[in-house]
Design a protein around this nucleic acid. Sequence first.
DNA 1: ATGAAAGCGCTAACAA
DNA 2: TTGTTAGCGCTTTCAT
Lengths: 340, 340
Amino acid sequence: MRPPTLRDVAQQAGVHPATASRALNPETRNLVNEDTASRVIKVAKALGYRPNPIARSLKTARSATIGLMVPDLTNPLFPPIVRGVEQVLSPVGYSAWIVNTDNDADREKSQVESLRSRQVEGFIVATARLVHPLLEQLHADGVPMVLVNRRLADGNVPSVTPDDAAGAAMAVRHLTELGHTRIAHLAGPQDTSTGVARLRAYREALAAHGIPEDPSLIVTCAAWTEVEGASGLRELLDSGAEFSAVLGGNDMLALGCYDVLEERGLRCPDDLSVVGYNDVPFVDKLRPPLTSIHVPHQEMGAEAAHLLLDILQNPGRHPRSVLLPPSIAVRQSTAPPKGR
Amino acid sequence: MRPPTLRDVAQQAGVHPATASRALNPETRNLVNEDTASRVIKVAKALGYRPNPIARSLKTARSATIGLMVPDLTNPLFPPIVRGVEQVLSPVGYSAWIVNTDNDADREKSQVESLRSRQVEGFIVATARLVHPLLEQLHADGVPMVLVNRRLADGNVPSVTPDDAAGAAMAVRHLTELGHTRIAHLAGPQDTSTGVARLRAYREALAAHGIPEDPSLIVTCAAWTEVEGASGLRELLDSGAEFSAVLGGNDMLALGCYDVLEERGLRCPDDLSVVGYNDVPFVDKLRPPLTSIHVPHQEMGAEAAHLLLDILQNPGRHPRSVLLPPSIAVRQSTAPPKGR
DNA sequence: ATGAAAGCGCTAACAA
DNA sequence: TTGTTAGCGCTTTCAT
């Protein structure tokens, strides 16, 4: 029993397929006699008719689908974003096609091609680097796109990001209020907006608190990974620099710090206060619970989906970007410095 | 500039679209003169031709796509499974369409319908309950399907699951070797194969070690959540039953135990040893690091994808199921009982 | 080895 | 308001 097609419905209802199509599509139902419409709908239901989205896509070059590009779903930062996106898209009949890029330019390229050939109507992209030819080209081509979490250097591409400057400033303020003056920073990759913005805000916050900047307290990590965070802190410790607190560029880098403290027999927060960024799931359960800048991940995804839908519906309109306010989740990984 | 179609390629190469189609498809290339084929291929490359999978799907009723149903991507158990699936599918040109069901039967139903209308060629399903009309129907309809992590009561549906019996036995043995004899179990939902199998194995393992079973040491949780785990342990503690160790049905239930220990001022492992199940990411970083039964999640996904591809390629063949051996990751949440 | 023709299921001009 | 017609881009008989 082949599933029923529009023709089957039309035949059963005694109308032309085109009429059946109009009757079944809410957008065009008003073009059709009310009685006819309800008859068609009844028949469709009786037959268990399901429209074939593939045929529709082929005809209309649309798909009610968007591409959602994340670096890696096993990074706990991204699943909540995905859920936020879906929570907004589902009610309006859209779906997200999720791909992992592993931050690999070649993979990104082939994923984008594959998604475009599947007629996705737009992209939500969590993998932006500041300079990103692929995404820049996409935007130049007029492909609807919203960035999430990270931005491009080109501020014209709509984005939904945490207010990194505000968050990093909060972190520094928290530490200074505890009495810290020697605050190190494990900066994230400087080819990402988050890495750059948090580093800059860290510097400015120190200045604002009258703390002179010490370049030897800044290490830039090559990736947002625990391993990189660990080697970053080792470098700081081995340099002999003095510091009583460290701000990780994100929670993974902070996690790496925990590993090094363990390995060196140092204690957190007694020997070193540690602050993370993002407040991803489970950092509140670490040993010790990690003080972190909280970012509303799911809302970020939801907001990005709203923005994209908006762009799809009003192609001409000026694109907006959204900056979400962070908050600080103070936990046991931060405490006043020892000598106090 | 509309992207080039097969007709454009054919025209440029001076052949009929049908010939171009044959030349471009590796499966049918042998039907075509070698020179013609290479000419077509060259033109296609020059024009940047990308076949339109939608048109192909409409014609062939296939899609090189499978549906991947998970309960919730924000549960860290599932992203590694997803990655494992993709790791196997990508090289053979298949993709996975991921959906979250939240274990909701209505959502499941509409997701399945939506995926089927998109011509997915099969399903990998991580959301099975023992009795599951939707999946049973799907299987009865001959829809290619592989279960992962959890199984149906109907053992004829191919599955890739951890060896729950072996894992639970390992956990109990570990605890008895430490000297525990009063071992409680927070059993998972008994409508899932994992919940049932782990509970049964726990019982059998106790018996095998000559420990009499005590029903007051078993609490069944209604969901695989931290909240349920917490109320389970509260119930055990409030009952006045004596026990020095608890085996969580999975890591989330074990996490709930941590919360209750904190709230009651009890210490792990001093007052209570806790064992989890699954060894999901980050449980090794908890306070204290959680002893857990390790399951190879990514391999589970990879193996499920292999099985499904196998079914798609050999529709007639007898379906296999795979049981993956667990191992135990011993960490600081387990120690000899106090009185020792 | 290649071309001709048909059609997958649907929608959008256009015509009536 | 409804029907006619055409075609989205591709593959697959069938004929040559």
